[in-house]
Design a protein around this nucleic acid. Structure first.
Length: 111
DNA sequence: AAGGTGACTAACA
DNA sequence: ATGTTAGCCACCT
């Protein structure tokens, strides 16, 4: 399984109403320092993907997405639709990680 | 083959 | 608390 597929595999495990960070996902696929690459992988998703890309945010709880296909605004609306409170800040959106961060402890990593 | 670029982070100042 | 820095890794020239 290549890197991208692993990222998507893990991302699909995030339940509705929860979020995960790039770093968390990187750790689960045995590359604890590949957070940037995770973002790179998600960026490559097609606009009609079934992968819940909106549930992946950065370690500070911000929607750091910068992608013409998937804007932070769209991401915020999708998350709210799932029941997550997204706070609008100056030029970014913020999610309370303490409340919504998903715990992967029972998730098996991909092969 | 080698250098540049991010949807990142943890560690410092 | 806030801003900067230097690693990092997969991709793309």
């Amino acid at each position: 399984m290549n890197f991208y597929k692993k990222v998507y595999f893990i991302t699909k495990k995030i339940p509705r109403g929860k979020v995960a960070t790039y770093g968390q996902i990187a750790s689960l696929i045995y590359s604890p320092r590949a957070a940037r690459a995770v973002g790179f992988a998600l960026r490559a998703l097609p606009s009609n993907t079934s992968c819940p890309w909106q549930r992946v945010i950065n370690s500070r709880g911000q929607l750091s997405i910068v992608n013409p296909k998937f804007t932070a605004k769209l991401q915020a609306s999708l998350l709210r639709k799932e029941g997550i409170k997204v706070k609008k800040e100056e030029d970014t959106y913020i999610v309370d990680l303490k409340k919504y961060l998903f715990d992967f402890k029972n998730v098996k990593p991909p092969k």
